[in-house]
């Protein structure tokens, strides 16, 4: 089954966000919630409302797969967004700002 997560950037600081349970935006990719095709439609609608409320920008879906028990984005681009620059993994949001935040 095709799985996706929903991502955006927070307006006020540009931080990468992943839509987690709640629904609530999380900075840590590990807390992103996977959606099947039907659930994704609803998640993206939530994202669009968040854009209208000027909390986040650039909401879109990211295809993911289960990889040895954890979720991983399919594309290199989204893996870099999820885990930080491959050349400075210490700087990724999941590493240095592993906090649960409200958008």
């Amino acid at each position: 089954m095709k799985l996706s997560v929903v991502t955006a950037n927070r307006l006020r600081d540009g931080a990468i966000l992943w839509l987690g349970a709640g629904p609530a935006w999380r900075e840590h990719f590990a807390e992103a919630q996977p959606f099947d095709a039907d659930a994704l439609v609803i998640a993206l609608e939530f994202g669009a409302r968040e854009v209208a409320l000027q909390r986040v920008i650039g909401v879109y879906a990211v295809d993911v797969e289960h990889n040895t028990g954890t979720l991983s984005p399919l594309s290199a681009r989204e893996r870099v967004r999820a885990h930080g620059p491959s050349v400075r993994p210490d700087l990724g949001y999941g590493q240095t700002h592993n906090t649960l935040v409200e958008a």
Binding site: D13, G14, A15, I16, G84, L91, G92, Y93
Partner: peptide, 13 residues
């Protein structure tokens, strides 16, 4: 923002 050199890139502004 672009006129002021501020882009939105992969991780942040």
């Amino acid at each position: 923002r672009l006129m002021n050199g501020l882009y939105l890139q992969l991780h942040a502004y």
